[in-house]
């Protein structure tokens, strides 16, 4: 409930983690490096991504994202394909920003 209370006043920001340069993985650009922030929504997806090495704080590179279909990322010496629906819930920020 703490989270709800904090965001109650500006609901348009409900989904973000508080930083202004947050974006979703589905919006990421090909070839760029990002930092993982977190996952909105289900615990199942969150645990799955974290256990596959995509946990908050980790740096990763987007290898493909062409607006449709899964997003391909490279993280911790491996590559993952993340369905578009999932990618829309993964919060990231650009590395260095």
């Amino acid at each position: 409930m703490w989270r709800w209370g904090r965001h109650w006043k500006h609901r348009e920001n409900y989904n973000d983690t508080g930083s202004d340069d947050m974006l979703y993985l589905s919006e990421a650009g090909e070839g760029k490096v990002y930092v993982m922030l977190g996952v909105g929504g289900g615990q199942r997806l969150r645990q799955k991504l974290y256990s596959m090495g995509l946990n908050p704080g980790v740096k990763f590179r987007v290898i493909t994202n062409n607006g449709r279909g899964p997003v391909g990322v490279e993280v911790r010496d491996t590559r993952l394909a993340i369905g578009r629906g999932m990618a829309q819930r993964v919060k990231i920020r650009e590395n260095g920003s």
Binding site: P70, T78, L80, A81, I82, G83, G85, M86
Partner: peptide, 10 residues
């Protein structure tokens, strides 16, 4: 349906 997250192994 399970989340579509899959490894692309080398």
């Amino acid at each position: 349906s399970a989340p579509f997250v899959m490894e692309l192994p080398p």
